[in-house]
Amino acid sequence: MDQNRQGARASYVVLAAFVAVWVLLPSAVRRFNREAFVEFQAPALHLLGRSRDLATFFEKKSRSAEELAAAGRDLARINAALELKLKTMEDLRRENLRLRELTRYNVPAEYLSVVARVATRDSSSWWQRIVIRKGRNDGIRPGAPVIFGDTVVGRVTAVHLTTSEVDLVTSPGFRCTAYLEGDDQNRIVLVNGVAANSLGAAKARVSVIPYDYLLPAGTPARVTTTGMGGVFPSGLTLGYLDGGAYATQVGNFKESLLVPSRDLYNLQEVSVLVPIHQTPGEALMQGDQFQ
C-alpha cells in the first residue's frame, strides 16, 4: 500500500520536474523538440496516407470492367473538351500578354505548383487544418496558397521536413481579400475563418460587404480571390455566399457567411502554389529574419 503511494508520489514529482524543466528550457530547445516530434511522427502520417491510398486503389480495382470502360469513355470526352478549352486559353494567354505589354502592366506573382497528397485531417472544432505529404524537402514554404483546381483550400502555416500543415479557408487563422460576384465596382471584402462549434459545419465569415451590394438573383454569389494581396492569384474560388445569413448589417457594411465550394474534409490531393519570389509576409512568418 505504502509502496503504491510512494510510487504515485514519485510519478507526480517526475511530472512536475518535467514540466518545470520544459518551462525553463530556452525557446530554441523547445522549438527543436517540437520539430523533432513532428519529424518523428511524420513517417506514421505518410504511412497512414499511403494505406488510405492503397485502400482506395483496391476499392477501385474491385470495380467491374463495364464500370471502368464507362469511366474511361467519360474521361476521354472530358479530355477532348479540355483540349479544346486549352487551345482557347492559349489564344487568351497570348492576347493577355499583348495587352500587358501595351499597358506596361506589372506581372503578377509567379508560382511553382507542387502537387501533394493529403496525409491526414485535423477537423477538431478549433483547428480547421490538414497535413499534406510534402514539406521543406519538396520546396514548400510557409504562407503559400493551397488550391484544388480553381478552388482555394487554404494556405500553408507550418512546414516540416516531409510534411506541411495547411490552414483551411474555414480556419480562424485564415484571412484574405475577395471580390463578390455581381459587384460591378469590384470592391474588396474580407474573408476569414471562424471557429465552428463542435457539431456545426465549418464556415468562414465574409465582412465589409458594401451596403449597396445586391445578391445576384438565382444562383449563390461566387466569392473569388482578388490577387491584390500578393499571396493568392486572382480569380480563384473561395466559396459561395450563404444567402440565408445574408441580411445582417453591421454599421455601414453587411456581413455574411461563406460556404466553401468543396468538401474540405474529403480532399485527397491538393496543389501548393509556391511563390518564385519570397513575399514580405513569408519573411515575417520566419520571424527571426526581422531585427
Binding site: C176, L190, M228, P280, G281, L284
Partner: peptide, 12 residues
C-alpha cells in the same frame, strides 16, 4: 493593394 497586402500577408 495596401489593404489587401496587409490582410493576406500580415500574421492573423
Amino acid at each position: 493593394k495596401a489593404v489587401a497586402r496587409f490582410i493576406e500577408q500580415f500574421p492573423v
